[in-house]
Design a protein around this nucleic acid. Structure first.
Lengths: 357, 357
DNA sequence: GCGTCTGCTCGAATCGATTCGACCGAACCG
DNA sequence: CGGTTCGGTCGAATCGATTCGAGCAGACGC
């Protein structure tokens, strides 16, 4: 360990000690130019003696114009974002793909402040690209800033902006597909539990004003539209906090704790986690899933603590993250990849059945 | 948006356009020196016209010697680490505290490779400090590298190394406390489900060889020792994958699917998530918690999907993360904070009761 | 009216690397 | 044996800012 106050060795120190020029020493560490084996040996020796742990990444980055980091923007508190297993799966796939290039993942949240507080923070960070994988609906103030800096942006649908390369799914089509599946089973009284339509949305019935066809690429909106393509009159509740079990439980109680005649025979949740909450609420009320109530999710994540396999639209989060990572990699390599749409598949589980009677 | 190939504006460009020197322009953006209002105005105008989004963070960092990023090391796949709500709580608290300084959190995982692959990755990253909050037991190869670079390190107990500033809890004492609590309730046949003792541990009975008193600061080891202080003969199983519901379920089945006479009346789990798994396994086998089986956890996290409140040792993950963040901040400010021990408190829930009969 | 102080601005050095072109000696070719 | 090539090394420019000390003009005090 080097004592405090003592200057850390630099490439120059090492070069001097090895009796070579700085440029040669640099060549040794980067492995780029042709260097005689003996020379390389001497430099490495000098480095070891001085406790030189490699070229300063900052200086290297500055010269090369690569920051060595990809930003991952998270709306709100980290805790919230990381409760969503789908978001984590995406992140996991992204990390996996980014592993093959010398790049870290920089988490950028905004625990307490307003979204605007993100921009000044962002301004101080050296980033090669930014991924919006864990953001909610709505525009993001960071988009303008990043565009000005010329930093490529990626997302899984939100924010919806032309300057962002997207890995989308056909939200509306997928939602309609799972709704049709319930319809085929015979369900007619079907309700849905949505994620918030807007960042400002509060838990409760979805106000019509919040559903804009222009924002159909926002998952919550697109999925609601798809649901209504099949069940135009179904009740629609939204959670106040994105995809959470608590939100699902609350919405489930609200929808199910009513006279039997009014009670839906099936509930379409916009995420698996919400669906799990609905199942829990149903069982609390003494209902049996799927005999008394069918429940569908969306995402296709693992919920090891749920004693059911959800019927859901599998959108393969990890794969989505990997694709995102590939796009990032290609971009950093000088490419100009285009947005793509990823397929989703209906996966039948044990939470759906024909309605009773 | 600036077109490709066109040079992005720099401080120099802006200064020229505003008719001032680079140094003055710098002063305007950093807000440090005394600058005439009119001059500042001109510079800002020039910046706006050129679409200059602020000084290049890389150059700024290089000059100032701050990287603007704190690394967070994650063992294994991100997915694994982020399944553990306690780890997330710590991370959340850390992020909250780091919010007040211009610093990002850089996630560093090692999805597929061996632990050694972390070092080369690390070598390319500019970091002001590193936090080991999501690491498993055992030493970490990154410690040597980071020490050589003089980067301050922090952790919540593992790896246990003198060069790392720690926020510890008295693992052994806390585990003994909760065990004594069960003992007071009248339990005598008590088993425990531990997290892995070593990175290489596999699911199943804990081999005595893996329990070294020297590593009592490793949570899994310390907690096992505490358990044995009270129940020296209790069966001890460990999971193969850290703190996971699946691990808890598997261990729960193994411990409970036996003749009644051999079945423990209480199970001490080393984490809430594992405890939840044990509860699930018990209920699968037709047992009622807490009448037929008492279960205790460790951590004190929210599990909204579990229809019980676990009896647990609350170690306030978020607070722990905040403390960690404070230590990091103080260190970056030039301080030399020392390791501290955080108190934990027993929190009674609905999963414990006196044994039947 | 002269010296001093204050407020603002600037030039130049610096952070620690990378990289391009120049250079040099040795080997190789005809 | 002269000319060319090539492997290896080096010096200097560069990346884009920050910062320190110097300089300069105007205000102020006496």
């Amino acid at each position: 360990m080097v004592s405090r106050g003592q200057a850390r060795p630099t490439l120059r120190t090492v070069a001097e000690r090895a009796g070579v020029s700085v440029s040669t020493a640099s060549l040794v560490f980067s492995g780029k130019g042709p260097v005689a084996t003996a020379t390389a040996e001497r430099v490495k020796e000098a480095a070891a003696e001085l406790g030189f742990a490699g070229p300063n990444p900052l200086a290297s980055s500055l010269r090369q114009g690569r920051a060595g980091a990809v930003g991952v923007l998270v709306d709100g508190r980290l805790q919230m974002a990381f409760r969503d297993p789908f978001a984590i799966a995406v992140l996991d796939g992204l990390a996996e793909e980014l592993e093959s290039i010398p790049t870290g993942m920089l988490l950028i949240g905004q625990p307490s402040g307003s979204p605007e507080s993100t921009v000044p923070r962002l301004a101080g960070l050296a980033l090669d690209a930014v991924v919006f994988s864990l953001c909610g609906p709505g525009d993001h103030p960071a988009v303008e800033h990043l565009a000005a800096r010329g930093i490529p942006m990626f997302s899984t649908g939100v924010p919806a902006d032309r300057r962002i390369t997207q890995v989308r799914v056909d939200e509306r089509g997928a939602a309609a597909e799972i709704a049709r599946y319930l319809h085929r089973l015979g369900h007619r009284r079907v309700a849905t539990v949505a994620m918030p339509m807007l960042p400002s949305s509060v838990a409760g019935p979805v106000p019509e004003g919040e559903v804009s066809h222009r924002s159909a690429s926002v998952p919550s909106v697109g999925r609601l539209l798809g649901f209504r393509d099949v069940f135009p009159d179904g009740a629609a509740l939204q959670t106040g906090d994105g995809s959470s079990v608590e939100g699902g439980i609350a919405a489930g109680r609200a929808l199910l704790d009513v006279p039997v005649a009014e009670r839906p025979t099936a509930i379409v949740a916009q995420s698996d986690v919400i669906a799990a909450g609905v199942v829990i609420a149903a069982e609390e009320l003494g209902l049996t899933v799927p005999a008394d109530l069918s429940v569908t999710g969306f995402d296709g994540v693992d919920l090891p603590w749920l004693p059911h396999r959800l019927t859901t639209m599998d959108q393969q989060g990890r794969e989505k993250g990997r694709i995102l990572g590939t796009l990032v990699r290609r971009t950093l390599a000088g490419g100009r990849p285009r947005s793509i749409t990823q397929p989703v598949t209906l996966r039948e589980g044990t939470t759906t059945a024909p309605p009773r009677g």
